Amino acid sequence: MPVAKVHARQVYDSRGNPTVEVDIVTEKGLHRAIVPSGASTGAAEACELRDGDKSKWGGKGVLKAVKNVNDTIGPELIKQDIDVKDQAKVDEFLIKLDGSKNKTNLGANAILGVSLAVAKAAAAEKGVPLYQHVSDLSGTKKPYVLPVPFMNVINGGSHAGGSLAFQEFMIVPCMASSFSEAMRQGSEVYQQLKSLAKKKYGQSAGNVGDEGGVAPDIATADEALSLITEAIEKAGYTGQIKIAMDVAASEFYKEDAKKYDLDFKNPDSDQSKWLTYEQLADQYKELISKYPIVSIEDPFGETDWDAWTHFYKNVDLQLVGLVA
């Protein structure tokens, strides 16, 4: 089943910033996708094409990317007459059409919007849910296993004010009997956490960061993890809910010094307190021994390979990172 029509528009994301929305029309109907966008990005990530006009949306408009979908990608995709179920062929076409090393010509946001909408169209053509189509593409063995939700409950780093360096603290309801049960447990813990944060740090501590987690004015990861642990206990889920972190360490990695500044939001940060990767790794290991942490994302700078190697050999938990 080929693509009959492609149309993109600029919409707003959860932070109130512009992003790309793409519609693809086939015989089965209209299939829509919206491109996500993060606050912190890695050096090796593909180019998110923004307009750069500071007089509108602070330069974050995506009208160029939208135009690339409507004027270039759409017409060419229709002309190619590719079956939407052949995701690899569609994506190869999109990459070749852009022709650059890092999606700088058409924009990764333009390309991704089309690719996502195509995947939805393919699922509709096959008459299956999107997750089943993605599973088919990846060759995942059956039966399906529902993912465990990682629920972002405390925001720090570039996602919030205050001095907390680590970007996200998440709860992991991995012992729940169903996905809906996991969501209920997470919701109950989150409400307990909000209440505790207000009681300990004042009413403003109930305010949320960029991604919905509370953002109390706390300075250390230990303080954040202690608060989460208490919320889990008060909700009645001790031993049933684990914890994950997305440190986003590249945000405070000083590459020239090869050190980590946990006070990076302070322009007068004391350089004598910057940490080597070994010292930061020791902090992680101490936190892991104290709290039920099962996953850490981006614990070190994305180019600090010695740190990753050192830490990987010394811990037994899920490590998440971007491989360039």
Results as ranks from 00 to 15, higher is better:
residue 80 Q to C: 11
residue 229 T to D: 13
residue 267 P to K: 09
residue 4 A to D: 15
residue 224 A to G: 03
residue 34 I to H: 06
residue 144 Y to G: 15
residue 60 K to P: 10
residue 7 H to V: 08
residue 47 C to A: 11
residue 162 G to D: 14
residue 32 R to V: 13
residue 298 D to K: 00
residue 15 R to I: 05
residue 34 I to C: 08
residue 254 K to E: 15
residue 154 I to N: 05
residue 150 F to W: 14
residue 210 D to Q: 01
residue 140 T to P: 01
residue 184 R to N: 15
residue 248 A to P: 10
residue 104 T to S: 15
residue 48 E to A: 01
residue 274 W to F: 07
residue 133 H to K: 13
residue 318 Q to A: 07
residue 3 V to P: 01
residue 77 L to W: 07
residue 39 A to M: 04
residue 187 S to T: 10
residue 70 N to Q: 08
residue 130 L to W: 06
residue 248 A to S: 11
residue 122 A to Q: 04
residue 313 K to E: 11
residue 61 G to P: 01
residue 103 K to I: 00
residue 294 V to F: 02
residue 155 N to A: 08
residue 172 V to K: 00
residue 167 Q to E: 05
residue 132 Q to F: 07
residue 187 S to N: 07
residue 70 N to H: 13
residue 219 A to H: 07
residue 78 I to Y: 09
residue 78 I to W: 03
residue 277 Y to K: 04
residue 217 D to E: 13
residue 183 M to T: 10
residue 144 Y to F: 15
residue 134 V to H: 04
residue 320 V to F: 07
residue 198 K to L: 06
residue 212 G to L: 05
residue 143 P to Y: 06
residue 184 R to I: 12
residue 84 V to E: 09
residue 12 Y to I: 13
residue 73 I to D: 07
residue 294 V to S: 08
residue 189 V to P: 09
residue 312 Y to R: 14
residue 15 R to A: 05
residue 87 Q to L: 14
residue 317 L to D: 06
residue 93 F to L: 05
residue 263 D to Q: 06
residue 116 L to Y: 11
residue 93 F to G: 01
residue 44 A to C: 15
residue 91 D to L: 05
residue 19 T to Q: 10
residue 151 M to W: 01
residue 322 L to N: 07
residue 73 I to H: 12
residue 171 I to N: 02
residue 146 L to M: 15
residue 46 A to G: 07
residue 197 A to H: 10
residue 58 G to V: 06
residue 274 W to T: 02
residue 271 Q to E: 14
residue 66 V to K: 08
residue 64 K to Y: 05
residue 46 A to V: 10
residue 250 S to F: 01
residue 180 S to T: 04
residue 225 L to C: 11
residue 256 D to R: 01
residue 49 L to K: 00
residue 286 E to G: 10
residue 180 S to N: 12
residue 244 A to C: 03
residue 228 I to Q: 01
residue 156 G to M: 04
residue 135 S to Y: 09
residue 47 C to I: 13
residue 194 K to M: 12
residue 211 E to A: 02
residue 4 A to Y: 14
residue 202 G to L: 00
residue 37 S to A: 14
residue 171 I to Y: 04
residue 95 I to R: 05
residue 227 L to I: 05
residue 120 K to G: 03
residue 156 G to C: 04
residue 165 A to I: 06
residue 285 K to E: 06
residue 93 F to C: 06
residue 80 Q to N: 03
residue 106 L to S: 06
residue 324 A to H: 00
